[in-house]
Simulated scan of single mutants.
Amino acid sequence: MSRYRGPRLRVVRRLGGLPGLSRKSPRKTYPPGQHGQARKKRSEYAVRLEEKQKLRYNYGVTEKQLIRYVRKARRATGSTGTALLEMLEMRLDNTIFRLGMAGTIPGARQLVNHGHITVNGRVVNIASYQCRPGDVIAVRDRDRSRRLVETNMEYPGLANLPSHLEFDKNTFTGKVNGIIEREWIALQINELLVIEYYSRMA
């Protein structure tokens, strides 16, 4: 299944708040479609599927990528669900979004893909690059790149900077000081249901 490029507010209405997908909030609070306002009982499978879709749409990953992240998380020490969220949060596109250089994760991905971002002094154009503690993330030293980020910073996606990041607004330089803690993850999700979804699919 490829990356979603359809109407974002439709997804937000269906799944609830997705801070990485859209800054806008929908006028209608019920899900889209003919039966959006009709209350219907959801099965356990539907609940797990919805939690998985929240992850996919918020972080902008494909089904294949998400399965790979789940497999890596299973091999990691500690809680599988927490390890999965940490890996998704430490992606370069998400880190740029959390630094405030872009209003959404798709916007941050575009900055990376177009070569506007450097990591430790080298241009990195792979959005899925895993940031590590000590990485210095900066805007490329070009007028066009700086103008783009300046414009984006007028309308940041999330106001609060997580404790594992620091950012200098004068030089457009950020630093990763550690791994994100669970309480700083903005997405409201039950990650255990996502792990359960994939364990039952296997």
Rank of each mutant, 00 (worst) to 15 (best):
F167P: 01
Y69K: 01
Y4E: 01
Q65V: 12
I189C: 01
R146S: 00
G115D: 08
G20A: 12
Q37H: 14
A202E: 15
E63Q: 13
Y69P: 00
R42S: 03
A138Y: 02
T104N: 09
A108G: 11
C131K: 03
E181I: 07
E50W: 02
V139E: 04
Q37L: 12
L18W: 06
G81V: 04
L49V: 03
Q53G: 08
K28V: 01
I195R: 09
Y4W: 05
H164F: 07
K24Q: 00
R91H: 13
P162Y: 13
P133E: 08
S128R: 07
V12F: 01
R142T: 02
P26D: 02
T173V: 15
L84H: 01
P156N: 07
K28R: 00
R23H: 04
I195G: 11
P26C: 01
S25F: 02
T62R: 14
E183L: 12
E86H: 00
L158N: 11
R48M: 13
R27H: 02
L99E: 10
I96H: 11
R142S: 03
I117C: 02
H35C: 08
I185Y: 00
N58C: 06
R200V: 00
R147S: 13
I179G: 05
L9Q: 00
Q53P: 07
R74G: 09
D135V: 13
L165C: 12
R3I: 11
L88G: 02
M153N: 01
H164C: 06
K64L: 08
Y197R: 11
G78Q: 11
A76R: 12
R140L: 05
Y57E: 08
R13N: 01
V123R: 04
T77P: 14
R68H: 10
V70F: 02
R5A: 12
Y45H: 11
E196R: 14
T118V: 10
K40T: 14
T151L: 07
K40W: 09
R122H: 12
E150L: 13
E166W: 05
P32D: 04
S145H: 01
P156A: 07
V12K: 00
Q53A: 12
I67R: 09
V119W: 08
E150D: 15
E154M: 13
P31R: 05
N177C: 13
R8G: 03
P19S: 09
T80S: 13
P133Y: 10
R14A: 14
Q37I: 10
A38Y: 14
L9Y: 00
I117R: 01
Y30F: 09
D168T: 05
T151M: 08
G33K: 06
E44T: 04
S199T: 15
G20T: 11
G20D: 09
S163P: 06
E183K: 15
S79H: 14
R5E: 14
R122P: 07
I67Y: 07
K28P: 00
I96N: 10
V112K: 02
A202P: 06
N58Y: 02
S128H: 07
I117E: 04
A186G: 06
S199G: 08
Q130V: 01
E166S: 15
K64E: 14
H164M: 03
S128F: 06
Q65P: 09
R147L: 11
L187I: 04
N125Y: 08
G16F: 05
Q34F: 11
A127K: 03
E154C: 08
E154T: 10
V112H: 03
E166I: 08
R146L: 05
V194F: 09
K41T: 14
